[in-house]
Design a protein around this nucleic acid. Sequence first.
DNA 1: TCTCAGTAGGGTAATTAGGGCA
DNA 2: GCTGTCCTAATTACCCTACTGA
Lengths: 72, 72
Amino acid sequence: MSMRPVESEPLLTPAEVAAMFRVDPKTVTRWAKAGKLSSIRTLGGHRRYRESEVRELLAGMIPEQRAADDQV
Amino acid sequence: MSMRPVESEPLLTPAEVAAMFRVDPKTVTRWAKAGKLSSIRTLGGHRRYRESEVRELLAGMIPEQRAADDQV
DNA sequence: TCTCAGTAGGGTAATTAGGGCA
DNA sequence: GCTGTCCTAATTACCCTACTGA
């Protein structure tokens, strides 16, 4: 059986993102609803997150978060 | 669920760090603002601390008298 | 088809940020 | 200088039930 290489972006589950930020999975959901983090939905309504975006946010390289950082 | 291995650094909450040093969480916040301790921010602005860094600082807490002894 | 950990949704408690003061 | 405490507002954690997905 042959699998044509379909380029897809690495996605993370809510639990995985939550673990990286050391927060509750529900908190990640709130970030998505608030538009602070873009999310992809499964056909059943569950959210998936782009690993690349999450890593950038963790590194503090996104404007939204830097705004919070700047008051330090 | 699979939980594909996502490499991320273990983080600590302000309360956890405060308990380890036996100080008020607010004091930990001041350490972070003073640059004595590096911090990562959640998307909501709350701080998270690197466990490895905290442990190193704890290990560096040397009793006054012992510090003097060490120079012998 | 069955199982069950994970997630969504909503509500309420607990932490944290920030400033100022002792 | 350094820490603890009081205050308000914002953010996050924990509770539940029902549905999703591997």
